[in-house]
Amino acid sequence: MALAIVQQFLEELPPSLQWPVHICAYTTVACYVLSVITGNVSQVDRIWTFMPTIYTAYFALLPFWPKTSLLPLFPYTPEDVLPAARQNYSPRALLMLGLTMVWMFRLSYNTWRRGLFNLHDEDYRWAVLRQRIPTWFFQVVNITFIAAIQNVILLLLGIPTYFAVFQQPTQLATSDYILAALALIDLTLEFTADNQQYSYQTYKHTGVLPATEWPFANLNWTAADLKRGFVTRGLWAWSRHPNFLCEQTFWIIITLFPILSPESPRLAPLSTSAITPIWPLAPALVLCTLFFSSTIFTESISLSKYPEGYRAYQKRVAMFIPFLTPAWGFLLQLQGKKAEVDELVYGENVPKIKGKDE
């Protein structure tokens, strides 16, 4: 019965979505099987850096692919794809592909230098989750969320380019140039946040700064910074998770390309669906929901390691939005607690707290 439902679902898919959905299904199964064999559930984490680019490239390059698959799982463009999308490249889709490739290089580099491409390495949060829930329930989470839902999210991140392809613009619009500039600024800020965190963590665990310090990364870490256990300087003085903020912002920007274009709302064959009003926003909404819930869990771990210091950090610095941080400071000032909290978050006389940062 289940197989029949799946088969019917695949047959009803628009032709241009059939290959991406098949790849998503195969990667889901592969990630789950590998997680069971190795006992390591970070398999999706390792493909996260490039799968959105693969889906984006497939859509942006529809005229390039052969009509039939040359090898198992090799991309192809079915003959029943709309002729305009099958024959013409979309400049908007190609621009989105270029931005996504820049995103991929940044994330892959950061993942590589942290050693997370090592097949034996696993995100520390999964180990914590194992301790907090029964073994059987962790396996349910593994197959449903870690393997399946995360792979679906990776596919969704390519959907804005799918929309752009079927809009078939003849040239880039003003909105495309503005969004592209914002995306590059966002990636620059995210790279800076990554570098500041990496510089701090390297110095914290080895006592030596990285051999190559990127601009704005060497913040002259002090003994107080090390005792505190987590970074609160640079971009991290304005947002508790500037990297997460920029990651969400990047995909919001990518989602907006087809929505803000002159061709909107003529998005794609799916525009006849009853869920049209929210469907174009799905990639950004789903990713932001994932990051918000993941951040709540991450902060619960940090709070358990640094109860006093991290609680003060939460009171002083906004979770994501930087312009809220001065407001939190003003509220603390009204309560007469700002000096005390600032000492814990930024000061020199911070009691030594042992542990690892998030």
Rank of each mutant, 00 (worst) to 15 (best):
L260E: 10
I278F: 01
T272P: 09
S264Y: 11
L287S: 15
T276R: 06
S271F: 09
S264I: 05
C288K: 00
V286S: 00
L287G: 12
P283E: 15
L287T: 08
P280T: 14
E263C: 00
S273E: 03
P262W: 11
I259T: 04
L285Y: 14
A284K: 02
P280S: 12
T272S: 07
R266P: 03
L287M: 15
P262A: 12
R266Y: 02
S273N: 03
I259S: 00
P269C: 07
P269G: 06
I278E: 04
A282I: 14
W279P: 01
L285P: 11
L285W: 14
T272W: 11
I278N: 02
P269K: 06
L285Q: 10
P277T: 03
T272R: 12
I259Y: 02
A282M: 10
L281E: 05
I278Y: 01
T289V: 08
L267D: 11
P280Y: 08
P283A: 13
R266M: 03
L260G: 07
A282Y: 07
I278T: 04
L267C: 09
S271I: 00
I278S: 01
P265G: 12
T276W: 04
A282P: 12
L260M: 13
L270M: 13
I259Q: 05
E263M: 01
P280K: 09
P269T: 07
T272A: 15
P262D: 15
V286W: 04
C288F: 02
T272F: 15
R266E: 00
I278D: 01
L267H: 13
A274D: 11
A274I: 13
L260H: 11
S264K: 05
I275A: 03
I278P: 04
S261P: 08
P280C: 11
L287N: 10
L287Q: 12
T272M: 09
P277E: 00
T272E: 15
E263R: 01
T272Q: 12
P280V: 14
P265D: 12
P280E: 13
I278R: 00
L270P: 09
L267R: 10
A284H: 11
L260V: 14
S271T: 10
S264H: 10
I275T: 06
I275L: 00
L267M: 12
V286R: 02
L281N: 04
I259L: 02
T276H: 08
A268C: 14
P262E: 12
T272N: 09
L281V: 06
W279V: 00
